[in-house]
Computed example of a mutant assay.
Amino acid sequence: MDPGNHSLVTEFILAGLTEQPQLQLLFFFLFLGIYVVTVVGNLGMITLIGLSSHLHTPMYYFLINLSFIDFCHSTVITPKMLVSFVTEKNIISYTECMTQLYFFIIFIIAEGYMLAVMAFDRYVAICNPLLYNVIMSYHICFRLTVGVYILGFIGSTIHTGFMLRVFFCKNKMVNHYFCDLFPLLELSCSSTYINKLLVLVLSAFNIVIPSLTILASYIFILSSILQIHSIEGRSKAFSTCSSHISAVAVFSGSATFTYLQPSSVSSMDQGKVSSVFYTCIVPMLNPLIYSLHNKDVKLALKKFWRLKNVYE
């Protein structure tokens, strides 16, 4: 379709999470609280691990990166969403919209692969404990982490690059609380077949590959745990994996529901609800899950508070 026959869209209006006025203020304080907990939890986790020498291991190196990804992921989305609760029209410029989309995709892809890397780390720790320090050396951990971010940048560059080629009609109302792929494609005047195909193919790749890695890791982990004869040994092995399994279940479930359905089948309103989980709830829950279920983190917290009380 010829762009010359249509006006150029320079800004969008984000519809927000709800259109019911009586819920706006309630949602504002609810998600403000969630964001504050997310920021404090993830930055606190990064600081705690950085200051605790006994946590300077591959597992917690990856956890620092997961916390960083969650903090960035939430910060890309939540502040703009909060604006929609207190303004009549939540306007976002075309440039800001594409920027938000770009960084959102980077961090959602990176989170999936980081969870896969953490599953591999647990597999090595439980199934090959004697070779753990050799296999999970600093250089290997660094390369795995860099690989996670590179995959995020590649996926985001492809999606955003093709989105920049889409021509938008006069309708500027995005039926979402942030600039996501399917809601933006609904406003297109030009063909979006390639874009939607890319969403399905790349989303499948970026969900299936980490999921298969996690599944394979836990099959081997479960097999090794079942060979442990002592109840205490099994319990300790399970405890090292429980936090990670909880984080994977919530993130993968909500992301799969949103991106592996054709847009004609998946309701945009349902998409809003499911996306709340991986944009707001998961980044808040991860530091809570890893701190409440992890004895090493609890010990580090106790030491931190003791030192704080001594200096006070």
Rank of each mutant, 00 (worst) to 15 (best):
P3V: 11
T10V: 08
F12R: 05
L17G: 01
L17Y: 10
Q20Y: 07
L26R: 14
L30F: 12
F31M: 02
L32Y: 07
I34V: 15
Y35I: 05
V37P: 00
V39Q: 10
I46C: 10
P58S: 11
Y61K: 13
I64K: 12
F68G: 08
S74Y: 03
T75N: 08
V76S: 05
I77D: 00
I77Q: 00
E88I: 09
K89R: 12
I92L: 03
L101P: 01
F103G: 01
I106S: 03
V117P: 02
M118H: 09
F120C: 08
D121E: 15
N133A: 10
V134K: 12
S137C: 10
S137W: 06
H139I: 14
C141I: 03
C141Q: 13
R143F: 12
R143I: 05
L144M: 15
L144K: 08
T145V: 00
V146D: 00
V146Q: 03
V146H: 02
V148Q: 05
V148T: 14
G155H: 08
T157G: 09
T160W: 08
F168D: 04
F168G: 09
K170P: 02
N171A: 02
K172F: 02
M173I: 15
M173P: 04
Y177Q: 01
F178V: 00
F178M: 04
P183R: 06
P183M: 07
L184A: 09
L184R: 07
L185G: 04
E186H: 12
L187M: 08
S188W: 10
S190C: 12
S190L: 11
S191V: 03
L197F: 13
L200C: 08
L200D: 06
S203C: 06
A204S: 15
P210V: 14
S211A: 15
L215G: 03
L222T: 14
L226R: 14
R234E: 03
A237G: 03
F238T: 04
S242V: 11
H244W: 15
S246Q: 10
A247C: 15
V250T: 11
A255R: 13
F257T: 12
T258P: 01
S263P: 00
S263H: 08
V265T: 02
V265D: 09
V265H: 06
D269G: 04
G271Q: 13
V273F: 15
S275A: 12
V276P: 00
C280V: 12
L285E: 00
P287L: 04
P287A: 04
L288K: 00
Y290H: 09
S291G: 14
N294D: 15
K295E: 11
D296L: 15
K298T: 03
K298W: 08
K298H: 09
A300N: 13
L301G: 06
K303Q: 15
K303D: 13
V310R: 13
V310M: 12
V310H: 07
Y311G: 03
Y311W: 11
